[in-house]
Computed example of a mutant assay.
Amino acid sequence: MPDSRIKNEEQYRALLEIGYSKEKSARIANTPDAGVKGGHAKPYNEWTKAELYQQARRVGIPGRSYMSKKNLIHSLRNN
């Protein structure tokens, strides 16, 4: 039975199959437009700290309010 808290169940299952943890899979699958391809976003180093903070908030990165811009970029790329 699908989990109602997961927005993109298909992507969530695919991430689990390739070895991602349940937490990381859920975080990615619940990101708005997570499965949409297109490459229209600018690189993180061109984002403002406020934009990075909002993205970290969307994906559920803990401790984001204490992070520098550099740490936010690192966390978004590696979580």
Rank of each mutant, 00 (worst) to 15 (best):
E10K: 15
I61M: 01
N78I: 03
N71S: 10
I28T: 00
E46M: 12
Y20N: 09
Y66F: 12
D33L: 09
H40F: 12
L76D: 03
R57G: 06
R5S: 15
A56Q: 03
A41T: 08
Y44S: 04
V36I: 07
Y53W: 15
G19F: 13
H74I: 04
A41Y: 01
E23T: 15
A41Q: 13
G63H: 09
A29W: 02
G35S: 06
A34P: 01
M1Q: 05
G63Y: 08
R57E: 13
I6T: 02
E46L: 11
P2M: 06
W47H: 05
N78Y: 13
L72T: 06
V36M: 06
S65Q: 10
K7V: 00
G39E: 09
H40Q: 09
A50Y: 01
A34H: 08
H40I: 12
K37C: 08
I28W: 00
N8E: 12
E9D: 12
N78G: 03
M1N: 12
A56P: 04
A34S: 15
S4R: 15
A14Y: 01
D3F: 07
P2H: 03
I18A: 10
A14R: 11
S68T: 15
K7L: 13
Y20A: 07
L72K: 08
S75G: 15
N30T: 09
N79S: 14
S21M: 08
D33F: 14
H74T: 07
Q55S: 06
S21I: 11
M1C: 06
G38R: 14
S65H: 10
S4D: 14
E46F: 09
N30Q: 07
G19M: 10
R13K: 15
P2A: 14
N71D: 08
R64F: 09
T48E: 04
K49P: 00
L72I: 05
Y53P: 01
A41I: 03
M67H: 01
N71L: 12
T31A: 14
L52S: 01
Y12F: 14
P32T: 04
N78S: 10
I61L: 07
Y20V: 05
N45H: 14
E10R: 12
A56W: 01
